[in-house]
């Protein structure tokens, strides 16, 4: 069987398109590259959506944590403490156990005359359940980063905004928020990289694989178990992740340049590739 044929058969296997049964014997390098690559689609799906949604939640949490009202501050504090203080692995387990405990016929929500039945079964599937956990997790980490940046927004900029008569939403939208992002960006880039790494835990963590559709690590360990040889699938997996990490750095670097474009060249903060490790 040619390699191209293998790619056609298994390239989208992780999404359930192509051959139904996984290869069982006579594994080729091509099969390993194709299937592990196919699994990467899930890693990208989880990473992109969790980051995209988490960005807004994180902003809200940062503002909440900086709020003078304890009614808003305390819940934000606790949320961040809960998700930053415990292992993601445990969060996955707990979330799965909690989701399966939801009534299997759905929850009835009485809305006056009509009763709405909320379907809950989909929450136990990785595409939804794990995404929710990753989303909450990255929101907490990024929220803490944004909060730190918010505290370091220079007073002068805020006073200048006041002097221009800006208030409320327009001041936040045009001054506070862009500066906060600019300051937080290097740390946030780190968080993004580590969130993508965390997506490798999804199918190792209590969410079962349906129809043998899993992420890159699911297939890598499938091959390692079947061939008893870890020296091929794990390096392939690592190679894919290096590429993914480099793409994240390129995209976030471009955004960083845009955030800093108003500054004189020598004052622009270059995206440092080594600073704190977040997770």
């Amino acid at each position: 069987m040619s390699c191209w044929q293998t790619v056609q058969d298994y390239g989208l296997r992780s999404l359930g398109i192509g051959e139904r049964l996984l290869p069982k014997a006579d594994f080729t390098l091509c099969q390993q590259f194709t299937l592990i690559g196919s699994g990467m689609l899930w890693n990208i799906y989880f990473g992109v959506l969790a980051l995209g949604l988490g960005f807004f939640m994180a902003t809200a949490l940062a503002l909440g944590k900086a709020s003078p009202s304890p009614l808003i501050r305390k819940p934000s504090d606790w949320f961040i403490f809960l998700f930053r203080g415990s292992p993601l692995f445990i969060q996955f387990f707990l979330a799965y156990e909690a989701f399966v405990l939801l009534p299997r016929n759905g929850i009835d929500i009485p809305l006056g005359i009509v009763t709405l039945t909320a379907e809950t079964r989909w929450l136990t599937k990785a595409w939804a359940g794990a995404l929710i956990v990753l989303f909450l997790n990255t929101s907490a980490y990024a929220g803490e980063i944004f909060y730190g940046a918010l505290q370091s927004v220079p007073k002068g900029e805020l006073e200048a905004a006041d002097a221009y008569g800006m208030t409320g939403w327009s001041k936040f939208r045009r001054i506070t928020w862009p500066t906060m992002l600019r300051l937080a960006w290097p740390a946030y880039t780190n968080e993004a990289i580590f969130l993508f790494h965390a997506t490798a835990l999804v199918f190792f963590s209590g969410f079962p694989a349906w129809r043998q559709q899993g992420d890159a690590l699911y297939y890598a360990s499938y091959f390692a178990d079947k061939t008893f040889n870890p020296f091929i699938p794990y390096p392939i997996f690592a190679g894919y992740f290096v590429l993914l990490t480099l793409s994240v750095i390129v995209v976030f670097g471009a955004i960083n340049r845009r955030l800093n474009r108003h500054l004189a060249t020598e004052r622009r903060s270059r995206l440092r590739l080594r600073p704190q490790i977040i997770r």
Partner: peptide, 20 residues
Amino acid sequence: YTAMVRGVPDIAFFLFVPIA
């Protein structure tokens, strides 16, 4: 050595290092 952990998830090392 210092760059490697940034590119690859730690879990891959945990699975790989002991057996290697």
